[in-house]
Simulated scan of single mutants.
Amino acid sequence: MNVPVESVRLVDSHCHLDFADFSGEIDQVLDRALVQGVQRMVTICTKVTEFDRVLKLAEAHDVLSCSVGIHPHEADHHPDVDVIRLVELSKHPKVVGIGEAGLDYFYDKSDRNRQQAVFATHIEASRQSGLPLIVHSREADEDTVRLLQQGAGKGGLTGVIHCFTSTQYLADAALEMGFYISLSGIVTFKNAEALRQVARTVPHDRLLVETDSPYLAPIPQRGKRNEPSFVRHTASFVADMLGLPLADFAAQTTANFHRLFRKVPQDGVIA
């Protein structure tokens, strides 16, 4: 049975709306998201050199917030950025998180030692700013956990493992440190049963949903350009997987989102 759109309140905790895929279409993309009950979105920075563009987009739309950070793919190719600079940029009201940052040993587009150094900088910036860390981790569970534990040991670190596709080990370690687990459209894919098994073990008050758009459109939109409105499909799938009504799951994940991203306004739908 379909839940009326107006009874569902969702968020897209991770998207990339500054990418060229959405050029000239942002207003329509946001309108479609609002129609599907997606009331808040965080557009994610991947290069500090392009932060001004990301921020400008967030400033132009009340439903958008943003982050500041360097994706691990960019670690080799990005000018040095220190903790002080990241913390200073994060003071803007629209900036609600640090990242995305982390480790990607699957593609290895940057030297692993350099990835670790840049990740450590973001971990410290998250601690000092008090903003959640948005973590990218692929085929790098042990080093991800080690660096996060080092930061968490100093206190004041929180965040989310975005687009989670990793092992029970990373999930358990992240949850132990107070982190959240965010599920993307990948959880709906037929070959993602191992991910679904891990997702079922995550406490409901630690789950988030996201699109990572323009990538990873969920079933039944797989193969299309992803966009925030499609987060409803992922939320519906996970709700069914967990045996929860969609409206309840949407309310839970939205509450989780606001508990983590404390700078995001909670004033309902903005037309």
Rank of each mutant, 00 (worst) to 15 (best):
R206S: 06
H136T: 07
Q221L: 14
E74C: 00
V3A: 14
A60L: 00
V48W: 05
L57G: 07
T49D: 15
R262Y: 08
V3F: 11
N2W: 12
V95F: 09
R222L: 11
D82L: 09
R112P: 10
R200G: 05
E50G: 08
R232E: 02
L208V: 04
I123K: 07
R200Y: 09
T121P: 12
A140Y: 02
L170T: 11
L55D: 01
P4I: 09
S7C: 13
S129R: 07
P93T: 06
I70L: 13
S236T: 15
H204L: 15
G69T: 01
K47Q: 15
S65G: 08
A255G: 12
L131G: 02
K190G: 00
G223Q: 06
L244F: 10
V198C: 01
V135L: 01
N191M: 03
A239D: 04
A250N: 03
L183N: 08
L216H: 01
T144Y: 04
V238Q: 04
P132A: 00
D141C: 09
A174D: 02
A247G: 05
D52K: 14
D80T: 14
D267R: 15
L242G: 06
D62Y: 09
V68T: 06
V264C: 12
I161P: 07
M41Q: 09
Q36R: 15
V95Y: 10
D248R: 14
V198L: 10
V54D: 11
C15Y: 07
T234K: 01
Q115E: 10
T43P: 12
T158Y: 03
V42C: 10
T121I: 15
E74S: 11
F261I: 09
V118D: 04
R262S: 14
G69V: 03
Q115T: 06
V81M: 05
V54P: 12
